[in-house]
Design a protein around this nucleic acid. Sequence first.
DNA 1: AATGAATTCGAACGAACGTTCGAAATATAG
DNA 2: CTATATTTCGAACGTTCGTTCGAATTCATT
Lengths: 215, 215
Amino acid sequence: MFDTLDRGDDNAVATERYHLKLRDLLEQCAALFAKKGYHNTSIRDIAREMNTSLAGLYYYFKTKEELLFLISRYSFDTVMTSLAEKLDHETDSKEKLKILVQNHLQYFVTHLDAMKVLAHESDSLTGEYYILINDKKRQYLDILERLLLDIQREEHGQKNLKITQPVKIAALSLFGMMNWTYTWYNPDKREHSPANIAKISEQMVQIFLNGFVNI
Amino acid sequence: MFDTLDRGDDNAVATERYHLKLRDLLEQCAALFAKKGYHNTSIRDIAREMNTSLAGLYYYFKTKEELLFLISRYSFDTVMTSLAEKLDHETDSKEKLKILVQNHLQYFVTHLDAMKVLAHESDSLTGEYYILINDKKRQYLDILERLLLDIQREEHGQKNLKITQPVKIAALSLFGMMNWTYTWYNPDKREHSPANIAKISEQMVQIFLNGFVNI
DNA sequence: AATGAATTCGAACGAACGTTCGAAATATAG
DNA sequence: CTATATTTCGAACGTTCGTTCGAATTCATT
């Protein structure tokens, strides 16, 4: 359970206290990064927010970039685990797609800060960190592309085994619709109330599914 | 013609030489910002790229933030001017929407650097700069929302005068589809060749239009 | 209470950054 | 050629940043 929070470090610690504080740290930092941006948030800002010393933070991460990586990985793993669980109980492809969008947007609005970071800052990562997060993005995209292929098969009775260019474009377009929400979604607005989130994601599914199927 | 490039400065200069170099500066900086990100590009990086001195750059902008603003405004004005011209020759609302998407993506791929900056960095702006760019975004969104309203009227014979919540969501979704391309579009890929750009934007229009109309 | 491990801290380092300023160089016009 | 305006530059300033390190403190176990 806790291993998704471990540092990439060799001599990582494993006490419960450590993991609790690390999780708290990641969430507060995600909020800061979401509000001020990764580059405009200094370690000193974080220390102030967490009521700890500057040096003390470095007990929990090796570099600022690792901190960004930890937040990104945490968000990704959470949303993907939750998706896998929900998809397990469903067999219809179209329903699966609805679940994916619902899950994505649901997580987006309840962890807006972390998702803003993931959508907007995750390509500030370099080297190994970049590769690891990009792998996860690729996996997520794969799930969606295969789902779209299934829908195409069921809908048109085609025996497509290969993911075609239009399917790729469609998948990327849907991600665009969903991920772009971080630029306009505002939890303080009345019309963005939790009750309306269901409506919003339902509408996105409708636009996309109608459009995709009727091509 | 040149005024869109003027500095917000009071004592702005107006020689032709000045504007030529400023335009060159903006384009090269857009490329740098697109590649390394706004925050990771230092004024020293820019000076190196432009083969000028560090201090010499400050003859063309007052602060680094103003530089970002100038790039953003330049991109926005170009894409909106070009759109306005094209829309003038068309009366059918659906066709107008196609033109909007085509124009947007066309400009996106031919000025990828500047558009990456616009889509990804423009909310690093603060104060007056932020307000000015946000106004332009609002104007652009307004155009799309009114277009969608027209389509709805023509399609369902409704007499909607007000822009409803679903129309707003639809407009933002379409922008998401289009703007998200900056995260995956790669001019070096064979399947992203100029000839295929037309296909990509056509497919986006199809997905969106089919989905939107069939709601 | 004693011991060792886990956690926090103050103070400081060097590096990189955006910006300034007056002088130097270059172009322009009379 | 002279004089005036435009453009470039070297050198430096002050600030902020990420990171380090050894000492101090707190915690868990016996």
